[in-house]
Design a protein around this nucleic acid. Structure first.
Length: 256
DNA sequence: ATGCCGTGGAAACCACGA
């Protein structure tokens, strides 16, 4: 079973790229972030025609997350991350598929830091830690996956020294990610490739993709029992080189 | 070192992203 995450950076603007990637790689489950579409503008017909069921949480202009599955039933568990009824940003959706709990997330960027956006990022992170801790008590395999907007270590940044003050790499951000991992989650890519340079995002500027000046910010965190079922993982890096593509590449794992 | 590009929405610019 192949499970993927892909920050599409506009689901309608990237629809040809998304459909081509689905057709070529046929993932069983897909989490999307940055739909940048209101609830009623999600391209449901095209996704259905491609053979996928979908649930989604849209928002006008920004954010937005979705879970797709190729023929498998999607049982939605919740939409929105618990812990703040005032939070109106569409960044979290959770569903049971094939007896797995799939938690699709788009963690706030947080720049500029310090400032209110960074405060929001850290408070969102805290809510995620609390919810993740709760999920570990559930008797079900869990995956937290999506765009975490965190480079966990220096290995995950092309030039770490340039990013130390950035919201994606500040000590508070890395500490929050580590605190989450320390609950017992496994970073799937790093478990299989502990020492390799692997990126999931390349800026549109400065020929970042051509220079491989990238970041690893899209992650899969597996609950303890689930981690034992991990077989493969990878980045569909070539997709980042397609026309009219997102600045992220799709990332995937295979579990048995 | 830097939104230099790209999107969506509104309004021919702006907010936002990482």
């Amino acid at each position: 079973m192949r499970i993927a995450t892909y920050n599409v950076n506009g689901v309608n603007g990237r629809l040809p790229v998304l459909l081509r990637w689905l057709q070529e790689t046929k993932p069983d489950i897909v989490c999307l972030q940055e739909l940048k579409a209101p609830q009623e503008k999600f391209p449901e017909a095209a996704i259905t025609a491609a053979g996928y069921n979908a649930i989604w949480l849209g928002q006008k202009s920004w954010n937005g997350v979705a879970i797709l599955s190729r023929g498998l039933e999607i049982k939605e568990v919740r939409r929105g991350l618990p812990g703040d009824d005032e939070d109106e940003q569409s960044r979290y959706i959770e569903a049971i598929i094939n007896d797995m709990l799939i938690c699709c997330l788009y963690l706030p960027n947080g720049n500029p830091a310090p400032g209110p956006k960074f405060d929001y990022k850290l408070s969102w992170f805290k809510r995620l830690q609390d919810h993740a801790k709760y999920l570990l008590k559930e008797d079900v395999p869990v995956i937290l996956l999506g765009d975490f907007n965190v480079m966990p270590t220096e290995l995950d940044v092309y030039k770490p020294e340039r990013w130390v003050d950035d919201a994606l790499f500040r000590p508070e951000t890395r500490a929050a990610f580590k605190k989450l991992l320390d609950q017992g989650w496994t970073d799937a890519i790093r478990k299989l490739y502990p020492n390799e340079v692997i990126y999931t995002f390349w800026d549109y500027f400065r020929n970042a993709y051509g220079r491989n000046a990238g970041l690893r910010i899209d992650h899969f965190l597996l609950s303890p029992h689930f981690a034992k079922r991990l077989k493969k993982a990878g980045v569909d890096k070539d997709v980042r080189g397609w026309e009219k593509t997102s600045d992220h590449a799709p990332v995937w794992i295979e579990v048995k």
